[in-house]
Design a protein around this nucleic acid. Structure first.
Length: 520
RNA sequence: GGCCCCUUCGUCUAGCGGUUAGGACACCACGCUUUCAAUGUGGUAACAGGGGUUCGACUCCCCUAGGGGCUACCA
C-alpha cells in the first residue's frame, strides 16, 4: 500500500441563503471520511456567481453545520492556514492561474457576448447538433486579440479542450467512468466580470488547499473530465473523487426548494433533533451492511466507509426521519428535553418569551394574556407526558395548549360512544363529587386513580367515565390520560373544567350538532 | 437530441453464483388500552423486461425499457 497522505476533505457550498439538506449529507460524508482518518474537514464558500449573491448567506451554513455537529477545522469564520476560504476573496489567484493557462496555450480569450452565444446555441439546436462553442475566438490573430484587449473589450477566458481524447475518471463510488473530449465544450474559466467559474475555482482551490478527497454529488460527474484536464494543464496531481448519489424528491427529481422543505433551518424549526437528522441522512445512500439502524456520530465514524456508499439516488422519506426523530426524542433525558421544548412553547404562544440576552434560565414563565406564572418543573411534567407522543418538538404547542389556556371544543366530544347526553352529564356530576372531596395536597395521579377507577369500573365499560373526564380536561380528541392531566392542572382547574363540561351538556342541543351526531 | 449514471417490497436497504430473497419505515390485523401515542405479536409487499454465460443466476455479460444527471460567462 502506498504511503497514505493526510486526508483533507472539504464541504464547498455556494451561499444561497440557506443550508441545503442534501448539502448537509454531502458535508456529513466528507466530515466522516476526514475524521475517521484523523484528517481535516474544511469549509469553503463558493460564491463566484455575482447574480446570486445573498446577504448574510454564510451564516445559515455556519450555524447549520454546527447544529449538526459537523465542526470544520478550517473555514471562513474559524480561519486556517489556507486563508481566505471565501472564493470571492481569492479573485487574484484565479486570474493569475487563468492567465498562465492562456500563456501555455491551454486556454484562450473569448470576446463573444451572451447574445452571440445564445444565437449560436439556438442554431445548433435547430440543426439537431449538440450545443457547443464553435471556437471562433480561437481563430483570432494575436494582433487582433491584443488590440481588443487594449480597448478593454469584455472577454472571458475559455479552456481549450483537446480533440478526441479519452479521459478516465476513477471514482471511489462509481469506479471507472470514461468520457471522450469531443463531447466536452470549451468551458469558460474566467467570466467577463473577473470572477472564475466553478470549474476553475474548484480545481485551483482544491489543489491549493491540499484537498485529498473531493466528495460531491453526482451532478458533478460529467464535468469531472474538465477538471482532470485542468489538473493536467497545471501539472498538479488530482485528488480522489467520490461522487455521491443524489437526494431525491418523492417524485424522484433532484431535491429542490420548490418541492418542499429543503433548508436545514426548516427542519430545525420543526423540531428535529440533530442526532436524528444525522442518523437519517447517513443512511440515505449508505448503510453498514448489518441490521443496525441506530447510529450515533461516534458509531458512524467507526463504521462509515465510501465503499459501501450507494450509486443510486435516494428519496428523502420524511416518514423515516419522523421515526428516527421520535426515537431520539424518547432517548433525551427529561430535563434536557424540557429545555429543548421551551423555545417551541414560546413560539406557539404557550409561554412568554424572555430576553435572549438573559443568560440565566428563568425560574418562572409567564403565560400570555394571563396572570398565571408557572415554573420549570411544571413545564417538565407536561413535556414528560408528551415525550413518547411527539414526532417533532414543534408539536408541543398544539398538543399541550389546554394546560395553558381554556380551549373551546364541541360538546359532542364529551360523548362516549352512543351514550345519551343525560348519562354523560350524570357521570360527570358523579365525578365532580369525587373530585371535590380530594384535597389539593393529595391531588395526585395515583390518588385520583385510586378513587375514580372503582367508580368507573361500576359501568359496563369504564370508558363511559374516563372518556368524558379526559375530554373535559383536554378538549381534544387525543391527549394523555385524565389522571395525568388532572394532577398537572391541579384541583381547582380540574374542577372548573369538569363543571364547564357539565354546563355544555345542560345547554339545549343545537339542531345542527344534533344532526351531525346522526340518528343513523 | 447527445453524453454519462442508475434500477431488489410504496420508501431506505441486506444480498457480492446455490437463501423459504433478510431488516427498518410506512401500511394492515390482533393484544394491551378511556382516546392518542408507546409497546407486544403476526401479516401484506420486491429482484424492470428479454437474451446469453453456467449444472445453477437477484448476483456475471449484452440488449431493451424506465428513471435521473449534465449539456450556461449557475453552482
Amino acid at each position: 500500500m502506498a504511503l497514505a497522505l493526510p486526508i483533507r476533505t472539504r464541504f464547498a457550498p455556494s451561499p444561497t441563503g440557506y443550508l441545503h439538506i442534501g448539502g448537509l449529507r454531502t458535508a456529513l460524508y466528507s466530515y466522516l471520511l476526514a475524521k475517521q482518518n484523523n484528517g481535516q474537514f474544511i469549509l469553503r464558500l463558493e460564491d463566484t456567481d455575482l447574480k446570486r449573491q445573498v446577504e448574510d448567506a454564510a451564516e445559515a451554513i455556519y450555524s447549520g453545520l454546527k447544529w449538526a455537529g459537523l465542526n470544520y477545522d478550517e473555514g471562513p469564520d474559524v480561519g486556517g492556514s489556507f486563508e481566505p476560504y471565501i472564493q470571492s476573496q481569492r479573485l487574484e489567484i484565479y486570474r493569475e492561474r487563468a492567465d498562465k493557462l492562456v500563456k501555455n496555450g491551454n486556454a484562450y480569450y473569448c470576446f463573444c457576448d451572451e447574445t452571440t452565444l445564445e444565437q449560436m446555441r439556438q442554431e445548433q439546436i435547430a440543426k439537431k447538433q449538440a450545443p457547443k462553442y464553435d471556437r471562433r475566438c480561437l481563430k483570432l490573430s494575436k494582433d487582433e486579440i491584443q488590440t481588443r484587449l487594449k480597448n478593454n473589450e469584455p472577454h472571458t477566458i475559455r479552456m481549450k479542450i483537446p480533440d478526441n481524447r479519452v479521459i478516465e475518471v476513477n471514482d471511489l463510488v462509481r469506479g471507472k467512468v470514461t468520457y471522450n473530449t469531443n463531447e466536452l465544450d470549451d468551458q469558460v474559466l474566467l467570466k467577463s466580470d473577473g470572477y472564475p467559474t466553478y470549474h476553475l475555482a474548484v480545481v485551483v482551490d482544491d489543489h491549493l488547499m491540499e484537498i485529498s478527497h473531493v466528495t460531491r454529488t453526482e451532478e458533478w460527474l460529467p464535468s469531472t473530465p474538465k477538471h482532470i484536464l485542468l489538473y493536467e494543464y497545471f501539472g498538479w496531481t488530482p485528488p480522489q473523487w467520490a461522487h455521491l448519489p443524489l437526494l431525491l424528491n418523492p417524485d424522484k427529481s433532484k431535491m429542490s426548494k420548490r418541492k418542499g422543505d429543503v433548508a436545514v433551518e426548516d427542519y430545525i424549526k420543526k423540531g428535529y433533533l440533530p442526532e436524528a437528522m444525522i442518523n437519517f441522512l447517513a443512511f440515505l445512500g449508505w448503510n453498514p451492511g448489518s441490521e443496525k439502524e441506530i447510529y450515533s456520530m461516534e458509531e458512524l465514524l467507526k463504521d462509515f466507509s465510501l465503499e459501501k456508499v450507494h450509486k443510486a439516488g435516494a428519496i428523502f422519506n420524511i416518514e423515516k426521519l419522523n421515526w428516527y426523530n421520535q426515537y431520539y426524542i424518547k432517548q433525551v433525558p427529561l430535563e434536557e428535553l424540557a429545555k429543548l421544548c421551551i423555545p417551541y412553547m414560546q413560539g406557539s404562544g404557550l409561554i412568554e418569551k424572555f430576553p435572549i440576552s438573559n443568560f440565566q434560565f428563568p425560574n418562572k414563565f409567564q403565560i400570555p394574556n394571563s396572570k398565571k406564572e408557572v415554573d420549570f418543573d411544571w413545564l417538565k411534567k407536561i413535556v414528560a407526558l408528551e415525550q413518547e407522543r411527539m414526532k417533532y418538538l414543534s408539536e408541543i404547542g398544539e398538543s399541550t395548549k389546554f394546560f395553558f389556556h381554556t380551549t373551546e371544543y364541541d360538546k359532542n366530544l364529551l360523548i362516549w360512544k352512543d351514550s345519551p347526553e343525560e348519562e354523560i352529564k350524570n357521570v360527570l356530576q358523579k365525578l365532580l363529587e369525587i373530585l371535590e372531596k380530594i384535597s389539593q395536597d393529595s391531588f395526585t395521579k395515583e390518588k385520583l386513580q385510586e378513587l375514580i377507577m372503582p367508580e368507573a369500573e361500576k359501568f359496563e365499560n369504564r370508558g363511559l367515565m374516563l372518556w368524558p373526564f379526559r375530554a373535559a380536561l383536554s378538549g381534544q380528541k387525543a391527549s394523555p390520560g385524565p389522571f395525568e392531566i388532572a394532577e398537572i392542572l391541579g384541583k381547582e382547574e380540574t374542577i372548573e373544567k369538569v363543571k364547564k363540561a357539565i354546563e355544555k351538556l345542560q345547554i339545549s342541543p343545537n339542531p345542527s350538532s344534533y344532526q351531525v351526531r346522526g340518528r343513523l
